[in-house]
């Protein structure tokens, strides 16, 4: 990946991160940790990988994203607003009565949201349905899914994990946001994912792993996933992203309490200013 592209992506991710912090701070409380850990993957998908049209969010041949960890909505809303799916002013309405931006993603309210999520564990199943429909309709697009590491505890994921290879849904590219923290503690304390790569591999998936905040690594992993998917024996892909919950905001980064926390304006402003002090 050329340095110029990486630099652009970093600049775009900084904007996404800024608006994510700002959006949650406007309300004063929100799922900051799990939103900030997926900023880079969302930026890479929407600025580089996905075929989407902001002016035609329901374009049948678009690539789709199921943000199965629906509570990371604020990060995705920031990306979609910056991409022009809806006015930037909407961001300040997060979770206000009558808003089109609820804390958990809603396909009926928000242009660009492909699936309603929020009850953990259901997104990968929906992605299977999207991918099956594409196969039947002869549409060669990609279905992306992001699941949380805590969310991986939900058994329904593993039902879908069995189905996707069986149905040869190689055009599913899933990511695990492995930030190692869930609500009540570290994932190792609460319910360890153990050999998470081995688990997905055993279920019949193409598995890769990389730094979820490093654009060149993620880009290469996606390229490998796509290359193998196009082979006769292509598999659905699971890319484990090593991430940091609350990444990029000092008040939250890596802290157990960052799953859903109060954020006052001053704290947010300091964090946003710090984003621009870095090189």
């Amino acid at each position: 990946m050329e340095q110029g592209i990486v630099d652009n992506l970093k600049a775009q991710a900084r904007e996404v991160r800024k608006y994510t912090i700002d959006t949650i701070a406007n309300l004063g409380v929100g799922h900051i940790g799990g939103s900030l850990s997926v900023v880079e993957i969302l930026t890479l998908l929407y600025y580089r990988e996905m075929r989407v049209k902001a002016e035609d969010p329901l374009w049948r041949e678009r690539d789709k994203l199921v943000l199965s960890k629906g509570h990371a909505g604020p990060a995705l809303y920031s990306v979609l607003a910056l991409k022009g799916f809806f006015p930037m002013e909407w961001l300040s309405t997060l979770n206000r009565g009558g808003t089109k931006l609820p804390s958990h993603c809603d396909r009926n309210l928000t242009p660009g949201i492909d699936m309603t999520t929020g009850s953990l564990g259901q997104g990968l199943s929906a992605a299977c349905g999207l991918a099956i429909a594409n196969k039947l309709d002869g549409i060669d697009n990609w279905t992306y899914v992001i699941i949380g590491d805590g969310e991986t505890n939900e058994g329904q994921n593993w039902e879908a994990a069995m189905l996707a290879p069986h149905q040869k849904l190689s055009r599913i590219i899933a990511f695990t946001d492995y930030n190692k923290l869930q609500l009540d503690g570290t994932t190792d304390q609460i319910l360890s994912l153990g050999d998470i790569e081995g688990k997905w591999r055993t279920f019949g998936w193409h598995v890769d792993r990389c730094d979820g905040h490093h654009f060149p690594s993620m880009s290469c992993a996606i390229a490998r996933a796509k290359a193998q998917a196009l082979r006769e024996d292509g598999k659905p892909s699971m890319i484990i992203l090593d991430t940091i919950k609350g990444k990029g905001a000092a008040f939250a980064e890596g802290k157990l309490t960052n799953h859903n926390m109060n954020i006052d304006r001053q704290t947010a402003d300091i964090a946003i200013a710090a984003l621009y002090e870095e090189k």
Partner: peptide, 10 residues
Amino acid sequence: GVASGLSASG
């Protein structure tokens, strides 16, 4: 869940 994804695709 699979049915929901199929329905979302028409």
